[in-house]
Design a protein around this nucleic acid. Sequence first.
DNA 1: TGGTATATTGGTAAAAATACCAACAAGCCA
DNA 2: TGGCTTGTTGGTATTTTTACCAATATACCA
Lengths: 106, 106
Amino acid sequence: MITIEEAEIRSGIIKAMSHPVRLMVIEYLKDGSRTFSEIFGLFGFDKSTISKHLLVLKEAGIVSSKKNGSDMIYTLEVPCVTDFFGCVTAVIENNVRRQQVCLCKR
Amino acid sequence: MITIEEAEIRSGIIKAMSHPVRLMVIEYLKDGSRTFSEIFGLFGFDKSTISKHLLVLKEAGIVSSKKNGSDMIYTLEVPCVTDFFGCVTAVIENNVRRQQVCLCKR
DNA sequence: TGGTATATTGGTAAAAATACCAACAAGCCA
DNA sequence: TGGCTTGTTGGTATTTTTACCAATATACCA
């Protein structure tokens, strides 16, 4: 078994992925680095909101950023995080199979 | 790209995994089903707290439960979720490599 | 039946997450 | 330099999450 301390570290990283905007950013960066503006353009939220979501991903070590002129470039640090999405899909499909509507996010 | 609706569904499932107690429960159930009492015994929290964490996992479709006498048996529905832990470890190791302390969960 | 063990539900207080607006900082170029 | 673009930070209101206690429900057994 893992310790509670180890679980806290792991859950911090998972929590960083557990928001729709942050999940979409991860998906988007899977195919290559993007500027803040490109990422911002995907959503209808305020700039500051997107900037703070990116900070959460950065602090978790999931993305990194570097300045390029007046742009800020965001890069996915650990592409394997997207491997997980297949399993999330399996959970969703299993829920459908069991006639169980997922109650999350309602 | 995935849609925001799809991202909301996925993030709901990931959010269900993003708590240390729920993560430890998933790890614990990886080796087989367990009773509520066995799970409860791992932690120092109130029964009701653990019961509610298990409800979150159940509503996400990650675990299922069935009554057996006076016990409640919890089962991991989609074992592939634990595959993800390897990648979480990769994130942690990458953070260490980059001399970056993970700021999450402090 | 009455008592005990097992687990869930209701209610609530405290903490954390989220999104907005405003203000600021840094780079670019006319 | 002055103004424009790009992105972050500060502050705040709202919502969500979390953990506890108390009460309830269900099964078992004497």
